[in-house]
Amino acid sequence: MNQISALFKKEAVESIRNFKLFLLLAVFIIIGIISPLTAYLMPDIMAMVMKDAGIKFELPVVTAVDSYVQFFGNMNQLGLPILVIVTGSILTNEFSRNTLINLLTKGLKRHNVMLVKFLYTILMWTVVYVFGAVTAYLYTIYYWENELENILAAFGLTWLYGIFLISVIMMASAIFRTSFLGVLFTVLGVVIIMIIASIYPMTAEYLPQYLLTSNMSLLTGETGMSDVMPAVLITAGASILIFLLSIVTFNKAVM
């Protein structure tokens, strides 16, 4: 317990000193602002494009749903990649600079290192994601104020997917140890495999990737919570399993 709290403090100080927490916070709040802004400006942008192209049709009225479409789109294209790039080096840094060896030989348990790194990254992700989501939510209710269903659940899906990515980062770090690029490519590979696998409708509903594609239909009420439940359970289970496997791998690793 003592080791865990000391390591936690170390991680907290480190993330503040090397500006990673601040960086993630700023990026996610910017995403939270940009998304409703894009939705708000969309009719004007479309009108301009259509005027140039000589097309004419009635534009649908922008609603709160469009704001969330933008938010989740930005999250997938900007937020999650930046999360992986910024937090991906959390373990590889320690290995490549050999900063863990002294602590480990003095009796620091290896599984404690993994546990704290995992939990702290999740904590960091949760905090920055909540800031981004709340920003987007506040702007959306201020400008459109229509109520949507399952809003917390829809936000929660992307959050859970982030945790899954973090567990993949831990696994890849335990395997590659010093190579940050190895971690990046592993995460990329896992995501690409999931995208390819979700072409088949049979498997699509059970993959973590399904979480990212179904948060909009949850908001509009097209799908209920029970439809995404298999994917949620599988993602949560897979994250825990991958994390446990990464501890096993790290325990066997030669420093």
Partner: peptide
């Protein structure tokens, strides 16, 4: 647009 732009510019 100011409620959007001011915080956006501040953060950037």
């Amino acid at each position: 647009l100011l409620p959007f732009l001011i915080p956006l510019i501040i953060f950037q």
